[in-house]
């Protein structure tokens, strides 16, 4: 069923390593922020991405739109490879900056404090020559601002004069300025008050419906991601461990880490909450500078075997549209 839909973004074996200084002189170490991630995003869908802090969600999002230069792998946008480390393809991104945009987590930090809102939104218009003259430019800025629920007179103010929710609206208006097709929403609501969060989420959903946008929605809050996403990917320590349709993933998680993550989501019903058995993990998340051998989750996995320590599990499809990377599944031993 899903194969007829168009894949807008395809990512294959994407790696992003950051170099850091080691303890010894001239020693270089690598933080393996994103390790061999493969996924695709259908046009018009929302792909949710969850995982605990420091698991590489944000890095993955930024690397896909090449705000970070990937270490290796392949990124295909709308059929055109924009990055391929094997074929040495590194397209100039300027053309694609019009199509791929990002909304950042911290709205106040992501807006240049020295520029007025009008300048922030208008800069993108100027770079891509989207308006012919000053009047058109001004009209476009005003319409963008009203589209995200701000007043047109806000254009002459500076970002610090706004509340967090309004700042995030400015960030969204800025991303929409170039009429993008694909937007990476990098935890767009986690810096906001709960009351504002739902406003922004609803607005993002409305915009998606109106403009046919495709989202990569990154968050650490499973409940929000479940609400907004068509499909959900789960990341652990730089790797994608499971990916499936939202309903499927939330109700039939097959990877032990996903099961743990979901068991930590608060339930609104205290009765159910008490009755539920929570899976608690032992130990801390290992350092991505020195990740565990084999399956990266084996140090904390309650079902880990010798094979998990030695061999890296392959990310494969177990049932239609349901992908996971775990050795236990191959043996058919997971308690689904």
């Amino acid at each position: 069923m899903s194969d007829e839909r168009k894949k807008l973004v395809e990512v294959e074996s994407l790696r992003k390593y950051f170099t850091v200084k080691g303890n010894k002189l001239f020693e270089k170490k690598y933080v393996q922020a994103v390790e061999s991630v493969s996924l695709f995003i259908y046009q018009g869908e929302t792909l949710g991405l969850v995982g605990e802090s420091g698991c590489g969600k944000t890095t993955l999002g930024r690397t896909i739109i090449r705000l970070y230069e990937p270490t290796s792998g392949r990124i295909v946008y709308d059929g055109t490879p924009i990055f391929d480390s094997e074929q040495k393809i590194r397209l100039n991104m300027l053309k694609y900056r019009r199509k791929m945009q990002i909304i950042f987590q911290d709205p106040s930090a992501s807006l240049d404090p020295r520029m007025t809102v009008g300048e922030i939104v208008g800069e993108a218009l100027d770079i891509h020559h989207l308006t012919q003259n000053k009047n058109e430019r001004r009209d476009r800025i005003c319409s963008l601002l009203s589209e995200v629920g701000l007043n047109t007179e806000h254009a002459n103010r500076f970002p610090h004069e706004f509340s967090g929710g309004q700042q995030q609206r400015i960030g969204i208006a800025r991303a929409l300025a170039v009429d993008p097709e694909f937007i990476v929403c990098d935890e767009p609501i986690s810096a906001l008050d709960v009351s504002i969060q739902s406003q922004i989420v609803n607005m993002l959903e409305d915009l998606q419906r109106e403009k046919g946008l495709t989202y990569l929605f990154i968050a650490h809050d499973v409940s929000v991601v479940r609400h907004i996403s068509d499909r959900i990917g789960v990341m652990y320590l730089g790797s994608l461990v499971e990916l499936a349709e939202s309903y499927e993933l939330c109700n039939h998680p097959i990877h032990p880490y996903t099961q743990t993550l979901l068991s930590a989501v608060p339930l609104p019903d205290p009765e159910k909450s008490r009755a539920r058995q929570r899976i608690l993990l032992e130990g801390d998340i290992p350092s991505p500078m020195n990740p565990p051998s084999g399956c990266r989750f084996h140090t904390r996995c309650p079902y880990a075997t010798e094979r998990c320590k030695a061999e890296t599990p392959v990310f494969r499809e177990y049932s239609p549209g349901h992908y996971a990377a775990c050795h236990l599944l191959e043996q058919g031993g997971s308690d689904r």
Partner: peptide, 12 residues
Amino acid sequence: QDYIRTAKAKGV
């Protein structure tokens, strides 16, 4: 800072 990334995302 993030706003530098924002600018980069705009294509500056």
